[in-house]
Amino acid sequence: LDITFHVDGKNIHVHGASEEVVRIIEELIKNNARAEEIKETLERLLR
């Protein structure tokens, strides 16, 4: 699975993920999660 995301100002662009995963990533970023935390969360979800 190949998910890429980047933050452009306040806009979060996520590619290669389901809508549910996109929402989770957006929440994590809004809550100022570190990249490592986001990665760990995604790995748990995608197991």
Rank of each mutant, 00 (worst) to 15 (best):
H6D: 15
H6M: 12
F5W: 07
I38N: 01
D8N: 06
H13M: 06
E26N: 14
I29F: 04
D2L: 04
V21Q: 07
V14P: 00
F5H: 08
N31D: 09
H15A: 06
T41N: 08
N31F: 03
D8W: 01
R23C: 02
N11P: 14
A17E: 01
R44S: 12
I38P: 00
N11M: 15
E26K: 14
V22A: 05
L28A: 08
N11T: 14
R44M: 12
H15P: 04
R44W: 05
E36A: 11
N31C: 07
D8K: 01
N11I: 14
G9M: 01
E26L: 15
V7K: 02
E43T: 11
I3F: 15
L28Q: 06
T41P: 01
L46S: 08
A33Q: 07
V7Y: 04
I3A: 06
N31P: 01
E36S: 10
V7A: 03
D8C: 06
K30H: 11
A35F: 15
K39P: 01
G9T: 01
L46K: 05
I24W: 08
H15M: 08
E40M: 11
E37C: 08
E37T: 10
L28V: 02
E43L: 07
L1G: 08
I38T: 02
L42V: 09
L42A: 05
G9A: 02
A17V: 15
K10L: 15
H15N: 06
L42G: 00
K30A: 12
E20Y: 06
R34M: 08
E26A: 08
V7G: 03
T4W: 13
E37I: 14
E27F: 07
E43S: 11
V22G: 03
K30M: 12
L28E: 01
A33D: 04
H6N: 14
H13P: 03
D2F: 03
A33M: 09
L1T: 10
I12Q: 01
T41W: 12
A17T: 05
L1Y: 14
L45E: 07
I24Y: 12
K10I: 15
I25V: 11
E36T: 10
H6Y: 12
E19D: 11
H13A: 05
H6A: 07
T41Q: 11
A33H: 11
I29A: 02
I3G: 02
D8H: 04
D2C: 08
E26Y: 09
I3V: 12
E27C: 05
I29W: 02
E37V: 12
L1M: 14
E26M: 13
R44F: 10
R34Y: 07
E37K: 13
D2P: 01
I38C: 01
K39Y: 15
F5D: 06
V21F: 07
L46I: 13
K39R: 13
N11W: 14
F5I: 15
I24C: 02
